[in-house]
């Protein structure tokens, strides 16, 4: 274990960019570089966030969004890993679907939102539709390329020991692909956080996206920034959790 003081130093160094940004945010409105009505000093927006926490108004929005992110990411993971394993394992299926997937991946989920609204109205189905679309492709494509990249000699070796196809799939291909699956889930996680905002901006009554959008319409600009800060914290925390899970499951990898 490294000593604690060392870690603080490192953390401080790594935060230089962030600190400079926050200082700029603090002084730009104060010095009149930007219109103070549109952007308040960071301390004021931060206090707005504290206020929203203290009066409890943040939590319904936060929990709503967290619930949607969790469900959306779970859905994307199940479908993405399942399809990715299938596509990666059966190269014929991969060849038949790869072009389609590559095009789908490039179609913005946000461009499809109107289409979902057309079919499903302003419902949760539409919201999960775009969240799933935004977050499915990274985990799916990472999983399938992971399966494809499994070291052939491992498969040959286990096959020579008499291993069945099923054994090879679950005991060689799946664990060998795990690191790339986790990378995919992590990417999907951040896409999910991005998509939830858009999903909640239109036709939602709760959620951080709604908070941001609605605060602007009500001229509560500090609350709007408070919502944005919360979203950033949610994104970073989610990534942190996913990295921790990834490390736990792939500790065998060479550092």
């Amino acid at each position: 274990m490294k000593s604690k003081s060392f870690d603080y130093k490192k953390l401080l160094f790594r935060s230089i960019g962030l600190i400079l940004f926050l200082v700029l945010w603090e002084i730009a409105p104060r010095l009149g570089w930007v219109k103070r009505l549109y952007l308040q000093p960071f301390s004021e927006d931060f206090m707005a966030l504290v206020h929203l926490i203290l009066n409890g108004k943040l939590f319904p929005h936060l929990f709503m969004s967290l619930e949607r992110i969790a469900l959306g990411l779970l859905l994307a993971t199940i479908i993405g890993v399942g399809l990715g394993l299938l596509v990666g394992y059966f190269q014929r299926i991969n060849q038949a679907l790869d072009l389609l997937f590559q095009i789908f991946r490039q179609v913005s989920a946000f461009a499809l939102f109107p289409v979902f609204i057309l079919f499903f109205g302003f419902s949760e189905v539409s919201k999960f539709g775009i969240m799933l679309w935004a977050s499915l492709w990274p985990v799916l494509l990472n999983t399938s390329s992971g399966v494809h990249d499994v070291d052939a000699v491992l498969i040959r070796s286990v096959k020579s020991m008499g291993g069945s196809k099923l054994y090879i799939f679950f005991r060689v291909i799946l664990p060998a692909t795990l690191p790339q699956i986790f990378t995919g889930i992590r990417l999907s996680g951040s896409y999910c956080v991005m998509a939830v905002v858009v999903a909640e901006m239109i036709g939602a009554k709760r959620g951080l996206g709604y908070l941001v959008f609605n605060s602007r319409e009500s001229f509560l600009y500090p609350d709007m920034y408070a919502g944005i800060i919360t979203l950033a914290i949610v994104g970073v925390t989610l990534n942190f959790i996913l990295v921790a899970i990834e490390k736990r499951f792939t500790s065998w990898r060479v550092a």
Partner: peptide, 26 residues
């Protein structure tokens, strides 16, 4: 049959003892 490959072909996510158990597991 048992093969020994030039590139060892050990499963990197398994400990050494667990690697020895693969054939027995099968």
């Amino acid at each position: 049959r048992g093969i020994v490959f030039q590139s060892y072909a050990l499963l990197p996510w398994r400990t050494i003892i667990k690697n020895l158990e693969v054939g027995l597991e099968i």
